[in-house]
Design a protein around this nucleic acid. Structure first.
Length: 440
RNA sequence: CAGGGUGUAGCUCAGUGGGUAGAGUGCCCGCCUUGGAAGCGGGAGGUCGCCGGUUCGAGUCCGGCCACCCUGACCA
């Protein structure tokens, strides 16, 4: 993409409304614009990041055997009356009326809808287990939106719902998602730690919040140093279809202490001893098992082989997709701007033509741009007639992993410069070598 | 929701005792420059959040409303 044809409104100054660094950088780097309190428009660069996160989430959900679907944003109040949550939910639910005066709402979550859909279509044990998911916009009318997209009112979320015949099956589904979450966040370059969370009225150990470590995180977290390793890699040898093996693996992992501020455990912290670590964290995912809460309330029954009938056991599994954009920036930025992990970066390479008015320089940059395109490398080409300093500053701000710099000085010697955004390392090499490096 | 704060140019902000509005930056044109956003000259751009009141006259004073932000409670 040529920058002269792109829509990238960057600003040098920090917008007054933004307090935390991710929010400031998202506005400055032209990722989003706020349109109302807690509601954001995603500009082209931000949309690309969102799409990359979605893609990783989708691939890992599919790999875990979950089935993608898409449920609406607008739901009817009657559906929520079935579970008796319509009155229970409170003012966080955005309630609206259609032209006929029918009561509708902008969905804050989809348990009722998925339960109704699955209930109406499934009557036999043969159709279970299943895990269904979708990636959809939600709305929760937060009293006080803040932190940019990290705590907006409208947000993009992946939510999955599992249906099983019994609790053992539900635990297996839970464990599948547990592993999928480790993989998902690891692929984004994040250290995400599952921490025991409140399970509500059901109790047990089947609820975890996935917290990513970020110095500017919203809450304080405590964990065993074992969590600093790549646990998703440890899961590679585990057969997710083998319920016992999977359970043993998850049990082994969760044996390593990890807790949020509210759930600290003195005894376990003392046991961890010198291996105890503390950090700040941001919640990016939450998985939990809630049994038959909805299947009973909404009367979902399946026939069992022995003629009996059961209410399926459910779990639900959320990932805050739009929140992750902010969380990733909190976890990865420096004084100059964003530092995108390569897997989610909006473009892999920022190509800089140092001298737009120098025909040789422009021709060399144009040629490189063409070759990058043929090689299938996502490139943002700064072909503006600006000074080098302005181009460097823009590239550093938007945080593309690589900067490829074409300037008259280097061309004299037949080299271009490749700079790694994360470390600032620079290297001079031939255009061909640079291409080969970036293609790898 | 309670408490507090702020609304003036795209952005960051000034605006004295009431007299119809400014800076920096950004943007446009020209020149000059060219390896880290900072050269020179010229120019465009504002119903001073909205409604009402006081006044000869309101960005400024008074009343009401709206929006946004901060702290807390709450939360993917």
């Amino acid at each position: 993409m040529r920058l002269t044809r792109y829509f990238l409104p960057v600003t040098k100054e920090t917008p007054a409304d933004a307090q935390i660094v991710s929010h400031q950088l998202m506005l400055r780097a032209g990722l989003v614009r706020q349109t109302a309190a807690g509601i954001y428009a995603w500009l082209p660069l931000g949309k690309r990041v969102l799409a990359n996160i979605e893609r990783i989430v989708r691939e890992e959900q599919d790999r875990a055997g979950a089935l993608e679907m898409l449920m609406p944003t607008i739901q009817s109040a009657d559906l929520w009356r079935e579970s008796e949550r319509y009155d229970a939910y409170g003012p966080e639910m955005l309630r609206i009326a259609d032209r006929h005066g029918r009561e509708m709402l902008y969905g804050p979550t989809n348990e009722e809808m998925i339960t109704a859909l699955f209930r109406d279509a499934v009557k036999s044990y043969r159709d279970l287990p299943r895990i269904l998911y979708h990636i959809q916009w939600k709305f929760r009318d937060e009293v006080r939106p803040r932190f940019g997209v990290m705590r907006g009112r409208e947000f993009l979320m992946k939510d999955a719902y599992s249906f099983d015949l019994d609790e053992a099956g539900a635990r297996h589904s839970y464990n599948r998602m547990f592993i999928a979450y480790l993989r998902t966040f690891a692929r984004m370059g994040l250290t995400a730690i599952p921490m025991q969370a409140d399970t509500g009225p059901i109790g047990g150990d089947l609820s975890h919040e996935f917290i990513i470590l970020a110095p500017s995180g919203e809450s304080e977290v405590f964990y065993h140093k074992a969590w600093e390793a790549d646990r998703a890699a440890e899961a590679e040898g585990v057969d997710a279809n083998d319920a016992a093996a999977l359970q043993a693996f998850v049990a082994g992992l969760t044996n390593d202490y990890a807790a949020t501020d509210e759930k600290r455990d003195d005894a376990r912290e003392q046991a961890a001893g010198a291996d105890l670590r503390t950090s700040r964290g941001i919640e990016v995912g939450h998985i939990f098992y809630f049994g038959t809460k909805y299947t009973k309330a909404m009367n979902m029954i399946v026939q069992m082989p022995d003629g009996g009938q059961v209410h399926p056991e459910m779990g639900s599994y959320g990932i805050g997709v739009s929140r992750l954009v902010g969380a990733l920036i909190e976890a990865s930025h420096d004084a100059a701007g964003i530092v995108w992990p390569e897997a989610v970066a909006p473009f892999k390479v920022g190509l800089i033509n140092m001298r737009a008015d120098d025909p040789r320089c422009a021709a060399a940059a144009d040629e490189l741009y063409g070759k990058l395109g043929i090689a299938g490398i996502d490139t943002l080409y700064d072909d503006r007639d600006e000074r080098g300093g302005a181009k460097f500053a823009t590239m550093d701000l938007i945080g593309l992993p690589w900067q490829l710099i074409v300037g008259p000085k280097g061309l004299e010697r037949g080299v271009v410069e490749l700079k790694r955004r994360a470390t600032g390392e620079r290297e001079e090499l031939s255009a061909e070598s640079a291409l080969a490096r970036l293609a790898g």
